[in-house]
Amino acid sequence: MKLKLSIIILTTLLLQACLYPDSQKVENAPTNDEQLNEVQQAVNQYKDQNGGLLPIKNRGQQTPIFIKYPIDFTKLSDANILGQPPGNSYERGGPYSYVILDPENEVEVKVADVRVNQKLRSINYEINIYRNENLYPPYGEMINKGYFNINLEAIELDEVPTVKSPYSGQKLEIIINHEGKPLVDYRPDVYRILEKENINEYDGDLRYLLTDHYPIVPSYSPPMSLVDGEIIFKEHVSQTTE
């Protein structure tokens, strides 16, 4: 009897592995229109029922603009609007944090890839160790004013640290600003859109090209402007979506 029971259990586990391959696990679930629309509708309903208030968590003024307004799913649940967060959300072990872009106007729901933050946190640890010993960040070659490549030798790295682009899947380099804060260089993804859409001029922050074309925000990124056909990192660029 025990042998038969063991065989049944093993068979069940094998069937589950076939029915739920790696591509369908929560942590690998892609963001999709259905999930985004569901959360968007819930946010809109909450806003209508609460005099324009949004179901967001409080974040400090220094929080990067694209992750400054994360959705508080507890508020949506308490209001009996949304039973639980989407399966690919960070709250349920997934790779995406649901955020609100432009809360003053469009109130559009997007997602941020939390794996980017996890990689930057690891690099920031190495940067802080170096800064504590040398009183300044591991500046490498200057990209343009206020932004630098990382000095690999200074923090004993064999290759340029990268993150996987949530847009193209390609490797994007991690850079630092004048404060030594690690950021993602999204220029390759932006150049790809500029070329595809045949855009030669653009006023404002180029990061909004990414949010216009994708449901994912470029979290932990420097503002970017288009100057004579070249993408330039800017220290101060309007953060509106005009």
Rank of each mutant, 00 (worst) to 15 (best):
K2R: 10
K4C: 04
L5T: 08
L5F: 09
Q16T: 07
Q16D: 04
A17T: 08
C18A: 10
C18P: 00
L19E: 07
P21C: 03
V26L: 14
N28S: 14
A29N: 07
P30I: 08
N32L: 09
E34F: 14
V39G: 04
V43C: 03
V43T: 04
N44T: 12
Y46F: 15
D48S: 12
Q49T: 07
Q49D: 11
G51K: 00
N58S: 10
G60H: 00
Q62I: 04
P64H: 01
I65W: 00
I67M: 04
K68V: 00
D72C: 06
T74Q: 13
T74R: 13
K75E: 12
L76W: 06
G87Y: 08
N88K: 10
N88M: 03
R92A: 08
Y96V: 01
S97M: 13
I100E: 02
L101H: 01
P103D: 07
P103I: 04
N105A: 07
N105P: 03
E108F: 09
N117I: 10
N117C: 00
Q118T: 06
N128T: 13
I129Y: 04
Y130P: 11
E133T: 08
Y136M: 13
I143P: 08
Y147F: 15
F148N: 10
N149P: 05
A154R: 01
E156Y: 14
E156Q: 15
E156L: 09
D158Q: 15
D158Y: 10
E159Q: 13
V163N: 05
K171T: 02
E173A: 14
E173M: 07
I175M: 11
I176K: 12
N177I: 05
G180V: 05
P182K: 09
R187K: 15
V190E: 11
Y191N: 15
E197N: 09
N198R: 13
I199C: 02
E201F: 09
E201W: 03
D203V: 03
G204M: 06
L209N: 05
L210P: 05
L210F: 06
T211L: 02
T211M: 00
D212A: 14
Y214E: 08
P218S: 06
S219T: 08
Y220G: 04
P222Q: 01
M224C: 03
G229Y: 12
I232F: 10
K234W: 03
K234Q: 13
K234S: 15
E235R: 12
V237Q: 15
